[in-house]
Amino acid sequence: MARFEVPEVDYTRYSNRQLAAIPLVVLTVALLVIGGAYATTGAPVDPGLDFTGGTELRVAVDAPSDTQAREDIREAFTATPDSIQRVGTSDVYIVTFQTEGSETAQNEFTRQLESEAGEAGFDVRSIEGVGAAFGSETQQRALIGVVAAFAGMAALVFALFRTFVPSIAVVISAFSDIVIPVALMNALGIELTLGTVAALLMLIGYSVDSDILLNNSVLRRSGDFYESTYRAMRTGVTMTLTSIAAMAVMAIVASFFGIGLLASIGTILVFGLVADLMNTYLLNVSLLRWYKFEGVAR
């Protein structure tokens, strides 16, 4: 049976600045992408139906080709669809419309879409509407949830280590692990929904787990700095790579079957976990090594 072995990295070949350079450059680029998105759209990432309000239809379309089906869908409705997604290789399509207005207007718009779909000969499998006011409230609650989770994580980390540099290393790594996937969501066109918010919250947990494992091994266990780092890497890298493989499989399978939410969650987690490997074993290691040999712990 094949066994995976984590290779031992010779950190002595690199200075702390060299180790920290790549994660910091990637983080800077990610922040610029998010800043650019916010400047142009007013949001750090494109919000989905859960946060903007609108209607989602699942319709079966009898058409000879995917191109023809999409054209038939656009012609069937007086309103312009915000997005049209095919479910796997089936004849079912997910059509979304973003709307503004009161709940009464939203309900009337939903009934109109259902009527137009029936007149076009589409088989309406499901229809769901979200009011703009409810979507805005949901967006605020999701933002509060992410901020509260991050603040709670930071407080717990500072309470555990009670020293600034090791604690701030964990917090910076967790922050970067969230920012990088959010930037990639802009690049890949993944919308911010309740599901993708849950994925970002999961990344906080993954990040803290690997970083605390490293910090504990270096600061609280006996042994040379590099021996302690490798000991933590053997466990941390194995766990993270296993999670990456599982999330990649989920994203691929979900994409094949047209389950957009699971595909988005899997994609975000894959990129976030890859970022976690970089931040933990480059940025965090550089800060811990500086703390151990050059900082206040000297």
Rank of each mutant, 00 (worst) to 15 (best):
L214A: 01
Q98A: 13
T55D: 11
G42L: 05
E191I: 03
E119Y: 04
L31T: 13
V197L: 12
E75K: 15
N284Q: 09
E75C: 04
I73H: 09
T163Y: 01
T238S: 15
V33D: 10
L277W: 00
M202Y: 04
T240S: 07
I34G: 06
E119D: 13
L27I: 13
M1P: 11
M202Q: 07
V29W: 05
S264T: 04
A174C: 14
T229P: 00
A232H: 01
G258Y: 00
V45F: 11
M239P: 02
P166Q: 02
Q106T: 15
T67E: 14
P23R: 04
A149E: 10
S264K: 08
G88A: 12
R162P: 07
F271V: 14
R74W: 05
E128R: 14
D46M: 13
V9M: 13
V61H: 05
A159S: 12
V249T: 15
L262W: 00
A43Y: 12
F122V: 06
L188T: 12
S243E: 02
E8I: 11
N107P: 02
Q139S: 14
A69H: 11
V218P: 00
V95W: 02
S217V: 04
F109T: 15
T52Y: 01
E103I: 07
A148R: 06
T40G: 08
Y11F: 15
V249L: 15
L156R: 06
L113W: 04
R86P: 06
N16Y: 04
G152C: 07
G145Q: 07
V179E: 05
F175Q: 02
E56P: 03
V182G: 08
L113S: 06
G260F: 00
Q85V: 14
M250Y: 00
A142F: 11
